[in-house]
Every structure is written in C-alpha cells, then in structure tokens.
Amino acid sequence: MLQNVASDPGALAPEELRAQYDDRLRETVETVGAATVAEEAGVSRESVDALAAGESPDLTLEEAAAILATEAETPDADAIEMEVLDELMMGMSIAVVDVESLEADLDGELDAKEIQQKIEGRFPVSLSELAAIQQAIEARKP
C-alpha cells in the first residue's frame, strides 16, 4: 500500500515520498470517484477534491488507509494502517535504529516519545510525518 509506493524510499526526500503517497491516493480517487471515496472513507469532500486536483491536503495515515480501502480489492482500513505501521517497526529492526536516532534524523520535528507513540499507533500520524519517518528508516537500511 503506502509503504510500497517507492522502490527506494530512503533515496527520496520526505517531500518526494509524500508526493508519491498523494499520487497513490489520487489513483484511488480517480478509480472510485471523489463522491464515493468521501462518503465511504469518511474523509472530507474538500480533502478528496484537493487530492483529485493534484494538491497535498493534510491527511492522517488513518484517513489515507480509509481512502485506499474504498477500492474493491484492498483490505479494510484498519488492516492497511496496521500493515504500514508494522512495516515501519520491521524497518527499524532491519536498520537497527531506535527512536532517539530517528529523532536526530528528523531534526527535532518529532521527539523520540512522539515517534514511538505514532509508530505504535497510539497517536495519529500525518502523511508528512509518515514520509519523514519512513524515509529516515529506509535511508539507514544496509
């Protein structure tokens, strides 16, 4: 899903990775239709229309997962969200990186505790935060 939109997310800037997330979501909006996506995903029509117009609206992982789940052949939103978060945790293990190191990589955008809580799904993570975290993890992988 979102975690697989780029072949080498570690080589991209977080903004570039976020743009690829938006492109993937835009594909869903184009396939399913903006009105249907907004209704079924419970995401504001303004955000869905912004995606369709090529913009990058403020969305959380939860909202993005709900958008993706409107496609017929995709898992439900909870499964998508958990898959993305699990992939981050697995990436941290492979890269042998802890949240304190990620905090340093993110130049103080998020502190270690916030990163931990977001990766564990205890607090919402915006798509921009997700892109920054995923990029930082992937850049450290051997």
Score class of each variant (00 low, 15 high):
2 L>N: 04
4 N>G: 04
5 V>W: 13
5 V>A: 10
6 A>P: 07
8 D>R: 14
9 P>H: 07
10 G>S: 07
10 G>H: 05
12 L>H: 06
13 A>W: 08
14 P>M: 03
14 P>G: 05
15 E>Q: 13
15 E>V: 09
15 E>M: 09
15 E>A: 12
15 E>G: 03
18 R>E: 15
19 A>L: 14
21 Y>V: 10
22 D>W: 02
23 D>P: 01
23 D>I: 04
24 R>Y: 04
25 L>P: 01
27 E>D: 11
27 E>M: 05
28 T>Q: 01
28 T>H: 03
28 T>I: 14
30 E>L: 11
30 E>D: 08
31 T>L: 14
32 V>Y: 12
33 G>W: 02
34 A>G: 13
35 A>C: 08
37 V>I: 10
38 A>K: 03
40 E>L: 11
40 E>W: 06
41 A>C: 07
41 A>K: 05
42 G>T: 10
42 G>A: 08
44 S>C: 13
44 S>E: 11
45 R>K: 08
47 S>F: 08
47 S>R: 15
48 V>D: 06
49 D>Q: 15
51 L>F: 00
56 S>G: 12
58 D>V: 13
59 L>D: 06
60 T>R: 05
61 L>I: 01
61 L>M: 05
61 L>Y: 03
62 E>N: 08
63 E>C: 03
65 A>L: 01
65 A>V: 02
65 A>P: 00
66 A>T: 01
69 A>C: 02
69 A>E: 01
70 T>F: 10
70 T>G: 04
71 E>S: 12
72 A>Q: 13
73 E>Q: 14
73 E>R: 14
75 P>K: 11
75 P>L: 12
77 A>K: 00
80 I>H: 07
81 E>G: 06
82 M>F: 08
84 V>F: 09
84 V>A: 07
86 D>R: 06
86 D>T: 09
86 D>V: 11
87 E>M: 06
88 L>F: 12
90 M>Y: 08
91 G>D: 05
91 G>A: 00
92 M>Q: 11
95 A>D: 00
95 A>F: 04
96 V>T: 14
96 V>M: 12
98 D>P: 02
99 V>I: 07
99 V>E: 12
102 L>I: 13
102 L>Y: 02
102 L>H: 06
103 E>N: 09
103 E>R: 07
103 E>Y: 02
104 A>N: 09
104 A>L: 08
105 D>L: 11
106 L>A: 13
110 L>S: 12
111 D>I: 13
113 K>I: 09
113 K>C: 12
114 E>Q: 15
115 I>F: 05
116 Q>N: 15
116 Q>K: 13
117 Q>P: 03
117 Q>E: 15
118 K>F: 06
120 E>P: 04
121 G>I: 04
122 R>T: 09
122 R>S: 07
123 F>R: 14
124 P>L: 13
124 P>R: 14
124 P>E: 15
125 V>A: 11
126 S>V: 04
128 S>E: 10
129 E>V: 00
129 E>T: 00
130 L>E: 00
131 A>F: 12
135 Q>I: 00
135 Q>M: 01
135 Q>A: 15
138 E>T: 09
138 E>K: 04
139 A>M: 07
139 A>G: 10
140 R>Q: 08
140 R>F: 03
